[in-house]
């Protein structure tokens, strides 16, 4: 990982001077790629390297074309032989991929595994794109894509600098019955809220933890963010609001509930700039869409 990071840094510096990074024995290594993790696959597509993909995991649902590639299963229960059977030359995997024992088995079989760390800030979102580009030897495309994402996020940041308010926001995930999970500290969810100029009203814990309807009411969020998939799992908007205590919050009373696709919202990938923009506009009604390029 550190080596990869260093290479990216080097690549980036060389890129600045218009020099191509030193050619590593490239083509053979990244010829047949298995991509694991929704936004990793999305980035591979965005970098124009989709034709190298020989397999993806079940969380790779965007773009549509990713769904027709051979499936290697859910990202946390991969199978070593299953992956090797696709004769890949590279496994490009989100940090969340596992189990760890299977990743160890795959490495031991001699297949290079590049792990992409989770992102929780603008810099890390940009770095993820660089890392994936580096791993696929698509540095130029990654430079362009990362630049565009960074520019978008920076524009939002600048627009937000003129806004004094930081509305209280909560982000919930639900998979059906039972208490929904709220995004606490150090989560992608909280990072999205922060980048879009809100403050997480449920920051008393780390990670995603179940919260009671009462705690949701007590947090008094002004805006609620829900993934589309959770609203569906709860049986529609009205049911979703009633089930988790949301209907008694200021957010629901003022109709400030933002529903976005899960991967778009939490993927920390090529579309994160758009997602943050969309959230920022919802958090700050005073911002005019035109102000953010």
């Amino acid at each position: 990982m550190n080596v990869l990071r260093r290479r990216v840094l080097l690549g980036g510096l060389l890129g600045l001077f218009g020099v191509a990074p030193v050619a590593v024995p490239a083509a053979s290594r990244s010829g047949r790629v298995i991509s694991v993790g929704g936004s990793v696959t999305e980035t591979v597509f965005a970098l124009g390297a989709a034709e190298r993909l020989v397999g993806v995991d079940t969380s790779s649902i965007f773009p549509e074309a990713a769904r027709s590639l051979p499936q290697v299963g859910y990202q946390r229960v991969l199978s070593a032989e299953g992956i090797l059977s696709l004769q890949p030359t590279l496994l490009l995997a989100d940090e969340q991929a596992g189990p760890a024992s299977v990743i160890t088995q795959i490495r031991a079989a001699g297949l290079p595994v590049d792990t992409v760390p989770s992102a929780r800030s603008r810099e890390e979102v940009v770095e993820r794109i660089h890392l994936i580009g580096q791993s696929l030897h698509r540095d130029a495309a990654a430079q362009a894509l990362a630049g565009a994402v960074d520019q978008r996020l920076e524009a939002v940041e600048q627009a937000l600098a003129h806004q004094d308010q930081r509305p209280r926001v909560i982000l919930l995930l639900a998979h059906g019955r039972g208490s929904p999970l709220a995004a606490g500290r150090d989560t992608q969810g909280e990072a999205m809220i922060r980048m879009a100029g809100g403050q997480n009203a449920l920051h008393g814990f780390r990670g995603y933890k179940p919260v009671s309807p009462e705690a949701v009411v007590a947090a008094a969020p002004e805006v609620v963010v829900l993934p589309e998939q959770s609203v569906e799992a709860l049986g529609g908007m009205d049911a979703a609001l009633a089930a988790s205590g949301l209907d008694a919050t200021p957010a629901a009373r003022h109709g400030r509930v933002v529903v976005l696709d899960m991967l778009y919202l939490l993927g920390m990938g090529p579309r994160t700039g758009e997602a943050v923009t969309e959230l920022a506009l919802a958090f700050h009604p005073a911002l005019r869409p035109g102000r953010i390029p």
Binding site: R76, V77, A100
Partner: peptide
């Protein structure tokens, strides 16, 4: 991540 393994049961980690 390693806990989910216990509830599901798997021989995938064999070494």
């Amino acid at each position: 991540r390693s806990l989910t393994f216990w509830t599901m049961g798997s021989l995938g980690g064999a070494s």
